[in-house]
Design a protein around this nucleic acid. Structure first.
Ligand code: FES
Ligand code: FES
Lengths: 152, 152
DNA sequence: CACAAAAAAGATATAAATGTCTTAAAACGG
DNA sequence: CCGTTTTAAGACATTTATATCTTTTTTGTG
């Protein structure tokens, strides 16, 4: 309910890249196998992330995708904004137009606070940091099995 | 992105009922006009809420729907759970099965905390209280125009 | 009983999200 | 220059969410 499949897959894939780290290109095919996500669907998602300049892509043998060097401090929030826009961080929880103090819905005050906490949660930690935690072990990015650096 | 239209409409309609208060039945037709929501769609939503025993319904002239007397302390969270299940309050933010400390995703610790704050936010205030605030004025439940008690 | 009001239920239509398949373009290696 | 690997792009299929329309059942009123 909270996030779309597109966002879920996108975040998982980006965290996978963050775990690998470095400046090597990882083929989308590889990622889709490692994380058990539909290859073609994931391709579309990475096309969006490439256009949003969060990843570099390169074609041909030894090609693939990797985190952008220039934007290594990107957070999960940036992925969400690139894939879905910033609705989650700006819109009225009841779907009313122009959320603001001017004409609040009955939940506005409460939601505005929650919304900020969510924004901090998604925005507070960089992919770099999350990638390091991932390498330190004990986390997963797919249904079963702990995360491990992809071999080859 | 956060809530479905079903949930948005359902919450708005229930808050409208809470604002009216009392034990009078309000026709769905009336609510749909007051809040500018598709009548037939809203009907389906109230059928769910009736089955979930959050509202009483009554057919025929002077019929309609009203908040259940027995469940006057219901919160927005109860509406959400009735209409969409408790995924928002239990599931992994990345969509992985069996969210828990046992096999956490990289966001688990962060999300688990946010999730609890969201649950508190939606669960903390009763519809009764929100209805009273609504009557005190200054809030809206539709695109434009402050909320007012429906006449007739 | 006849009629109108209203929820309940069912059928259908439309739009959006998700998923799959095919072709094209870029890059590399012989 | 040819074949392979890879992203990019486009076309299509399936499923789910949203929306509308029609029919049935219950209830009250005259
Ligand atoms: S107006 Fe509804 S959350 Fe701001
Ligand atoms: S496992 Fe992902 S939020 Fe708990």
């Amino acid at each position: 309910m909270l996030l779309s499949k597109t966002s879920e897959y996108g975040i998982r894939a980006m965290l996978h890249l963050a775990g690998v780290g470095g400046d090597v290109y990882l083929p989308v095919k590889r990622i889709s196998k490692d994380l058990d996500i539909s290859f073609h669907f994931l391709t579309k998602i990475f096309q969006q992330l490439t256009r949003a300049e969060l990843v570099d892509s390169y074609r041909g043998p030894n090609g693939g995708v990797r985190l952008r060097c220039e934007a290594r401090s990107i957070a999960v929030k940036d992925i969400l904004v690139a894939l879905e826009g910033d609705d989650l961080f700006t819109k009225c929880v009841l779907g009313l137009p122009e959320c603001g103090e001017g004409h609040p819905c009955p939940l506005h005050e409460h939601w505005a606070r929650s919304r900020m906490q969510i924004e901090t949660m998604f925005g507070g930690k960089s992919l770099i940091d999350l990638g390091a935690e991932l390498r330190s072990g004990g986390f997963r990015l797919r249904a079963t099995g702990e995360w491990t650096e992809p071999t080859k």
